[in-house]
């Protein structure tokens, strides 16, 4: 996937409802460079409270994996931008890994990240991605050593997703030097684009991670928090406003 100081915006599919989610994803997708869509799972161990709660509500309101994929198809037809999906392994495993990737591809998904899948267990996932033409995204973290980062990069065909710090997803008031140091350390090790996520919520954060050499900045919880459940129009405006503000800080 091509990233060039890109803003990647994340929302879980089906939040707060399937119907509202379609409009919100389109509103956000029109502003960002890449749209990242979560397919909610009941036990999201890598997520903080904001994404957990949104996913829980989405599942209660009928966000099935199949429904989420067809929602993505509708969004894709409108925004025509790269779409990455993020979920946990049991969702595609239960669906049937090959079938899931085939359906994802035919519904307009360009790349996929599985939060609880690392490269030691990813053979079947990678084979299914290759067959369907969906790109792989793998995570690197501040405690990922040099050799491991190179290995992760070699399994990746989309972009390397760098964790900004030791935490689950969620907004953070300040970025630490750990984040910028890690970007500077990992960036020269990878051939794929490098995007940084977890705790990125303000234009200062976006500016800092892109300035440190990242090719993309991923924002999720902050977008979810800007949604006003029950008021789609207000939510769309809030998403647009936040995306524009974050985008304005990217240094193209």
């Amino acid at each position: 996937m091509k990233l060039n100081k890109s803003l990647i915006g994340f929302l879980p599919a089906g939040y707060p409802t399937m119907k509202a989610s379609r409009e919100l994803l389109i509103a956000l997708g029109n502003e960002v460079d890449v749209l990242e869509v979560g397919i909610p799972f009941s036990d999201p161990v890598a997520d903080g409270k904001v994404i957990q709660d949104a996913g829980y509500i989405a599942i209660k309101n009928g966000a099935t994996p199949k429904g989420c994929l067809s929602l993505i198809s509708e969004v894709k037809q409108t925004i025509n931008k790269p779409i990455a999906i993020l979920t946990y392994y049991n969702i595609p495993y239960s669906y049937g890994l090959k079938q899931f990737l085939a359906d994802a591809s035919s519904n307009g998904v360009d790349a996929m990240l599985i939060a609880d899948l690392n490269i030691n267990e990813s053979d079947e996932f990678e084979a299914a991605c290759k067959e369907s033409g969906v790109e792989t995204i793998f995570i690197a973290a501040p405690n990922t050593q040099k050799e491991r980062a190179i290995e992760i990069d070699s399994h990746t065909t989309g972009f390397v997703y760098l964790l900004s710090h030791f935490a689950v997803t969620g907004t953070k008031s300040e970025l630490s030097t750990l984040t910028t140091d890690t970007i500077k350390r990992v960036k020269p090790l990878v051939k794929n684009p490098l995007a940084v996520g977890f705790g990125i919520s303000t234009s200062e954060h976006v500016r800092a991670v892109l300035g440190a050499g990242a090719d993309g900045a991923i924002v999720g919880s902050a977008f979810i928090k800007s949604i006003v459940p029950g008021d789609i129009e207000k939510s769309k405006l809030a998403l647009k406003r936040l995306a524009k503000e974050l985008k304005g800080s990217s240094i193209k």
Partner: peptide
């Protein structure tokens, strides 16, 4: 079995 874990916990 296996070890289906986020990368940050792999080390």
């Amino acid at each position: 079995g296996g070890a289906f874990m986020p990368e940050v916990l792999v080390p």
